[in-house]
Nucleic acid binder design. Sequence first.
DNA 1: TTTT
DNA 2: TTTT
Lengths: 161, 161, 161, 161
Amino acid sequence: MARSINKVILVGNLGQDPELRYTPGGTAVCNMRLATNEVYRDADGNMVERTEWHNLVAWGRLAEICNQYLRKGSKVYVEGSLQTRSWEDRDGNTRYTTEIKIREMVMLDPRSEATPEPEAAVTASTQRQATAPRQTFAPEPEPEAFDEDAYTLSPDDDLPF
Amino acid sequence: MARSINKVILVGNLGQDPELRYTPGGTAVCNMRLATNEVYRDADGNMVERTEWHNLVAWGRLAEICNQYLRKGSKVYVEGSLQTRSWEDRDGNTRYTTEIKIREMVMLDPRSEATPEPEAAVTASTQRQATAPRQTFAPEPEPEAFDEDAYTLSPDDDLPF
Amino acid sequence: MARSINKVILVGNLGQDPELRYTPGGTAVCNMRLATNEVYRDADGNMVERTEWHNLVAWGRLAEICNQYLRKGSKVYVEGSLQTRSWEDRDGNTRYTTEIKIREMVMLDPRSEATPEPEAAVTASTQRQATAPRQTFAPEPEPEAFDEDAYTLSPDDDLPF
Amino acid sequence: MARSINKVILVGNLGQDPELRYTPGGTAVCNMRLATNEVYRDADGNMVERTEWHNLVAWGRLAEICNQYLRKGSKVYVEGSLQTRSWEDRDGNTRYTTEIKIREMVMLDPRSEATPEPEAAVTASTQRQATAPRQTFAPEPEPEAFDEDAYTLSPDDDLPF
DNA sequence: TTTT
DNA sequence: TTTT
């Protein structure tokens, strides 16, 4: 099993500030919207620009770091994997949303004096290392191992994408 | 503009045979479903396997090659970019579908005697190169901008690779 | 610092069996030669094939798995980072060798009955996770910083996946 | 053949200004040195930073654009493939140099008023498109199709890496 | 909704 | 709906 690869690499800009929430179990979840732009010539030879919007989601320590250091307009490199979640709309129809669960984030904006920053590129694995010492009794579960119910947003929550 | 990167890399298996269609203008479009699998331990330490399904779309010559050489079960490497299309459902609601527009495809199945195959990894650009010499007056536009009439391959065309 | 990315992705075939060694401290190191092939037309329109050879190195548990499951001719996907080592030749000149330190490996050959295999794609991080519980007092350092004594797997260890 | 992938993705900074040369046949070649940095904790728990230097080479229009828009310190995303060239040192020994032949470059520095810039991410393929209209009689050959002799550097050339 |  |  698992003789497969599911990898996404994006460089773009955040369309708005990150949104941080916590699951009932206390795990941080950060949702972001990232724009990538493509420029090409159309059939008439005119330059056209097309923007693609991506839904990013980060978990755990990486979620908190994204929330702390990124802002609307921030330029970032992210790497992650595609996952499509299903949910039910108001009419009871099943809908699908594709997100990129990010595993690595590199800030590409020039460093400003005002905003100190993490010491290194942030990855899901450094996050485990980093938080381990403090989570003596409640090691952070892998995102994949989440009790799905624990991530259910309360009904009056905004949609997270 | 276009200081961004939108890249997807997948290795997985097709869930069904490719589906080839043609636009009214005669451009080939091939849709495929690709599975990637992930194995992890859940919170209770049990091995869990999760399958992610991806919608692939190929255009032009690459579409035809995918249709010709790939089958349900085929193992492939693909590289492409994310794009989300919107469409209207029966109730008039806007819906979104995220696809990977593939630009490169490498067959990973061992070669069989029965199925001859293209001589090289197939990319959207080799396809452009290849056809260029025949398009003396109508250089092929980017897929996003197809003048679809310009792209029809005549039935007796040589293979372009 | 570390606002950078150093990533290599290869799909190719091993030119010979992997070579496994151990450092004096007991850390496994596996060296492999991987071929990638490129096909193109030269200036005269003739098809030419060019083979590129890559030096791969894996460490720790990943080294042992590569050694156990791969053979001359094996088709693999690997992901890693570039690193150039310097060494001294017999004449006292400094020489440089560029290697890909692999972090992830996916076997692409069809499964045979004869060769059982690991249950999942193998990565440097699953390896760390897996061994962590046994390293109560000596969390495994990054490969670059191995306290090599801390990494010796005892002969009767369970497979960590 | 060519069921392989040879891909490198780097985000880093140039260590010096690009160096542009032309082959006897008039093709532009641009050599660059790119640094990537890695931060990790060593066995004693100290933060260590390690810099890796990469030899980049761009051809044709992409070479000229790199030379025109990049400078020492420029932050860039590049994508390309690994290739190892052999050459002979003063003692007649065969030596090897590994380079990344880049195919795509994205400038990551914030735009300044002072430096206008190309309209889009620059790739080896847009380069073909872009230059084609002007090269009525002398289409730029694929880098792979170069007359190898044409790239021989004259003896008193600086080494290009 | 970003960036240029 | 794939693969193992």
